[in-house]
Amino acid sequence: QLRFETNGEEQAKKVLEEAKKHNLEAHVTIENGKWVVHVK
């Protein structure tokens, strides 16, 4: 499982879109005010 700390909602959405293009499972959590994308 990969973990990407992003700078906010915009970047998190871009990472999610990329993951979906590659048929990867991804979800976002907010940790300590940071948007974190988890990709399987």
Rank of each mutant, 00 (worst) to 15 (best):
A19T: 04
K40M: 15
Q11T: 08
G33A: 03
K20Y: 12
E5S: 04
L2K: 07
E10N: 07
T6W: 04
K20L: 14
T6V: 15
E17W: 11
V15T: 04
T29D: 05
K14E: 10
E18L: 15
W35N: 01
K40T: 15
A12L: 07
N32R: 04
Q11R: 04
V28N: 00
V39M: 06
E25R: 09
K40P: 06
H27D: 05
W35M: 02
V39Q: 00
E25D: 12
L24S: 03
V37T: 02
H27C: 10
V39P: 00
G33N: 06
A19W: 10
E25Q: 12
E9R: 07
T6G: 03
E10T: 08
A12V: 05
I30G: 02
G8Q: 11
K34S: 06
Q11F: 09
E9S: 07
K13P: 00
A26K: 00
V15H: 05
A19I: 11
A26H: 02
L16V: 12
A19P: 00
G33S: 04
E9P: 15
V15M: 14
E10Q: 09
E31G: 02
G33E: 04
L16N: 01
A19H: 03
E10D: 11
E10M: 10
A19L: 15
G33M: 03
A19F: 14
V15K: 05
W35I: 04
A12Q: 01
G33D: 06
V15C: 13
A26F: 05
G8I: 12
K20V: 10
E31Y: 05
K40H: 14
V36M: 04
K21E: 06
E17S: 10
V39K: 00
V28S: 03
I30F: 14
L24W: 12
K21F: 09
K21S: 09
T29G: 03
E5D: 05
V37S: 01
V15G: 02
R3C: 11
F4D: 02
E9F: 13
E18M: 15
H22T: 04
E18N: 12
H22S: 07
F4K: 02
Q11A: 13
H22M: 13
E17M: 13
N32H: 07
E10F: 09
V36H: 02
V28D: 00
K20F: 13
K13W: 13
Q1I: 15
H27E: 10
N32Q: 08
T29N: 05
N23T: 03
V15F: 14
N32A: 06
Q1F: 15
A12N: 01
K34V: 14
E5M: 07
V37F: 00
A26I: 04
V36P: 00
E18S: 12
K20T: 09
E9K: 08
R3S: 07
H27W: 15
H22Q: 12
T6K: 03
K21L: 11
V28Q: 02
K34Y: 07
V39D: 02
T29V: 13
H38V: 15
H22L: 14
K34E: 03
E18T: 11
F4S: 03
G33I: 00
F4Q: 03
G8K: 09
K14D: 05
K20G: 06
G33Q: 03
K34A: 07
E17V: 08
V39H: 01
K13R: 13
